[in-house]
């Protein structure tokens, strides 16, 4: 598990195209109307968190805000609701990146759980104050789903860089 944190330093930076397409894919997933209340993973938030940790130069508060507003429109939520949540998740993840990345995938997921829960709680607070319906506890279940998904997700998103490193990229960096 610790392989991911140790090899970080010799990995080449991810391609911008890859970052954008993973974010787009996650965004698409979040737009699929799934129903059934809660427990569905908020993929845009997860992928944003991942890139905020791994490539803070390119994915930061600005990207989080933009995607958040677009997702709010796409889902018919209150405008700014998800933007607010994403911005805070990304900021906090970047501030703690060094500590979080020191752990393996499961450890990272457990450290990220409070951030994701905060994001959901922020959105709930905003909407309930404005007179929205209580979404039920299942709503917070999506943070737990993200914890369970994180190991697969982070390995999947790192895979192209690992492959490049193994294909000889690491030799030039030694």
């Amino acid at each position: 598990m610790h392989e991911s944190s140790r090899t970080t330093r010799v990995l080449q930076p991810p391609r911008l195209r890859f970052i954008l397409s993973t974010l787009a894919l996650a965004f698409f997933w979040d737009l699929i109307p799934k129903g059934g209340g809660g427990f569905w993973p908020e993929m845009t938030m997860a992928v944003l968190t991942f890139w905020a940790l791994r490539d803070p130069q390119r994915v930061g508060v600005g990207a989080a805000f933009t995607l958040g507003v677009m997702l709010d429109v796409g889902r018919g939520a209150a405008l700014g609701q998800e933007a607010l949540a994403f911005v805070w998740v990304v900021y906090l993840a970047q501030r703690r990146a060094a500590r979080i990345l020191w752990f393996g995938a499961w450890g990272q997921a457990l450290l990220l759980l409070p951030l994701w829960s905060l994001a959901l709680a922020l959105q709930a607070a905003v909407r309930l104050v404005a007179g929205g319906d209580w979404p039920g506890w299942g709503y917070f279940g999506s943070a737990v789903t993200l914890v369970l998904l994180w190991p697969i997700l982070s390995h999947g998103l790192l895979w192209p860089q690992w492959r490049a490193a193994r294909a000889g990229g690491s030799a030039s960096l030694s």
Partner: peptide, 13 residues
């Protein structure tokens, strides 16, 4: 940047 984005999001809300 966080402050600015938060302000923007809250204004939108």
């Amino acid at each position: 940047r966080l402050g600015l984005a938060t302000l923007a999001a809250v204004s939108l809300l």
